[in-house]
Amino acid sequence: MQISAKADYAVRALVELAADSARPLTCEGIASAQDIPFRFLKSVFRDLRQAGLVRSQRGCEGGYWIGRDPAAISVAEVMTAVDGEFLTLRGARPDTLAYPGAARRLPDLWRAVEAAAQSVLGRTTIAELAAEGAAGTEGAEDMASQRTGPGSSVRDVSPAVPA
């Protein structure tokens, strides 16, 4: 599974905005703080603004603000805002796939992978990431186990694939 640079940068930018919501932040400032290419970040902000996830203010006091309560913005929503469909396989949604013969169950696996990723990323909010980033890395293992449960992995989802 590959997460696009655009999705990664979008999530990082929103976390940066959520962590410092007292004032608008400039695109240059966010790019510098997160080590993101400035030109690329500008196009990411265009998509985020269209999705209502950020708002902008022009002028010398201008910059970007988070567009909604960061506790109501999931990582999955951000990824969809900048990349379109959450998960595709060769451009097709997993729920539209059908393979013949011995591979006929493979689309079930792709759907299970999508459901697992959607579950984790849909429960993870920008506010949580900003709070955990501000608190340091102490809670990183706790955060992962809260989202996936003890001992969980994508492999744990595979038994749900019908026989």
Rank of each mutant, 00 (worst) to 15 (best):
M1A: 14
Q2F: 14
I3H: 01
S4W: 04
D8N: 06
Y9G: 01
A10V: 11
V11S: 00
V11H: 00
A13M: 02
V15I: 12
E16N: 11
E16Q: 13
E16V: 03
L17D: 10
L17V: 12
S21F: 05
A22C: 02
A22Q: 11
P24W: 01
L25S: 15
L25Q: 15
C27V: 10
I30K: 01
S32W: 02
Q34T: 09
Q34Y: 08
D35C: 07
I36L: 05
P37N: 10
P37Y: 02
P37L: 02
F38G: 09
F38V: 10
F38A: 09
F40G: 08
K42R: 10
K42T: 02
K42D: 00
S43F: 04
V44E: 05
F45S: 01
R46L: 13
L48D: 07
R49G: 12
Q50T: 13
S56W: 03
Q57E: 14
G59R: 07
C60N: 11
Y64L: 15
Y64E: 15
Y64C: 10
W65D: 01
I66D: 09
G67P: 10
D69V: 03
A76R: 14
E77M: 14
M79D: 02
A81C: 05
V82K: 10
D83G: 02
G84I: 01
G84D: 00
E85S: 13
F86C: 06
F86M: 12
L87V: 13
L87R: 06
T88D: 02
T88S: 04
L89M: 13
R90E: 14
G91K: 02
P94R: 07
P94A: 08
D95G: 14
D95E: 15
L97M: 15
A98C: 11
A98K: 11
Y99F: 15
P100F: 08
G101C: 07
A102L: 14
R105Y: 10
R105H: 12
P107Q: 13
A112C: 00
V113K: 06
E114H: 05
E114Q: 14
E114S: 09
A117V: 14
Q118Y: 02
S119G: 15
S119T: 04
V120C: 11
T125Y: 11
I126G: 10
I126C: 09
A127Y: 00
A130R: 05
A130F: 07
A131T: 09
E138K: 13
E138Q: 12
G139E: 10
G139S: 12
E141R: 09
D142I: 03
M143R: 12
A144V: 15
A144F: 14
S145W: 08
Q146G: 12
T148M: 13
G149T: 01
G149V: 00
S152N: 08
S152I: 03
V157Y: 13
V157T: 12
V161M: 06
V161T: 05
P162R: 09
P162F: 04
